[in-house]
Amino acid sequence: PSSNTGFLSELLQGEPEESQVCSRVVASLLREQASRGKHDRLNTFSIMCKMADQTLFGLVEWARNCALFKELKVEDQMVLLQSCWSELLVLDHLCRQVAYGMDGSIYLVTGQKIDVSTVLSQAGATLSSLVSRAQDLVSKLRALHLDRQEFVCLKYLVLFNPDVKSVQDRRQVERTQERVNRALMEHTLHTHPGQSDKFGQLLLRLPEVRSISLQVEEYLYQRHLLGDLPCNSLLTEMLHAKHT
């Protein structure tokens, strides 16, 4: 267990503080608004996209600073991130709700809260369904008492996916996946001995995260085709990469 504890604390050290993430996104949004005249303010959807874009920048920076990720060539780093960027965004959102959210409201990366009912009353059918599905998953993760170590392990399992096509050093990605899997299993057994099969239950959430993320991508791509997404963003580049 001691080596496992050491391994998990190494993974945790790479985690940015929520306050840092929040202030970085808020600063970016304030700069953006300040650069705009009174009559071309960003609408709500564009602000949300900017938040997602800034959060994505942060996730790429997080991955880039992971010691295990650094062991991979840049080509492999790109392929893995292009495959899982939307899952990382969804997982990041879900875990923020578990850590800071309240029932019935959504906690944004900027620290603001929005009532789910408000979102559902204004959003279209697709977005409403996405929000509801995400909230259901938040409830499941809350019921599982997901903790920070488990959240980090799930992020690593999403990022180090050996099934991604055209990964060159597949064996290295598999090794990391196996190591993190073992660390997650030992951690859940050690911290929640009474909660039978917490490990299995956590892993069962990953296909749900994947499914929601694919729907998010499709939704964003449709909005992009309508010209609703801010251009020249990491978000649009990642969307394009998947559709080229």
Binding site: F57, V60, R64, V74, M78, L81, L234, E237, H240, A241
Partner: peptide, 17 residues
């Protein structure tokens, strides 16, 4: 513009500069 230019830049940028 290369389709992955920004991601490539972010993963390759040199922090020391």
């Amino acid at each position: 513009k290369k389709p992955n230019a920004l991601l490539h830049y972010l993963l390759n940028k040199d922090d020391t500069k």
